[in-house]
């Protein structure tokens, strides 16, 4: 008996929510690879703020939420929710009406 795809989907979504909502607070705050190289080699000042920097969700924190753990966690959960809507929606549209190939194949063999 095969494990259902949906078991994997729900477990994966649970891990994603936990990572973005809880673990993100403990992420390293050091500059990442590109940022460090830009700092070391004098072109970090060329970086301009994103035109979206004034969004209430900018920089993975929620404007007005003082508690940092809550702020980044909320941003992570919002991000996971938005990502789920966009990604599941897009891939569902792309695959609509297409049956798995091995089901087609097995039907073919039976016939």
């Amino acid at each position: 008996m095969k494990r259902s795809v949906w078991v994997i989907i729900w477990v994966g979504l649970g891990v994603a929510l936990f990572a973005a909502g809880v673990l993100s607070y403990y992420a390293s705050s050091s500059p990442d690879g590109l940022e460090k190289v830009a700092e070391d080699h004098g072109f970090i000042e060329n970086a301009a703020d994103s035109a979206n920097a004034t969004l209430p969700t900018a920089d993975y924190s929620i404007a007005g939420v003082e508690n940092e753990r809550l702020s980044v966690g909320l941003a992570g959960i919002i991000g996971v929710a938005v990502m789920a809507l966009v990604a599941f929606g897009m891939f569902w549209l792309l695959a609509r009406g297409k049956k798995p190939s091995d089901e087609q194949a097995s039907t073919h063999v039976d016939a």
Partner: peptide, 13 residues
Amino acid sequence: DERTAPMAGLVAV
């Protein structure tokens, strides 16, 4: 296909 599409969604999330 309809079985792998949800996996692609999960991978993105």
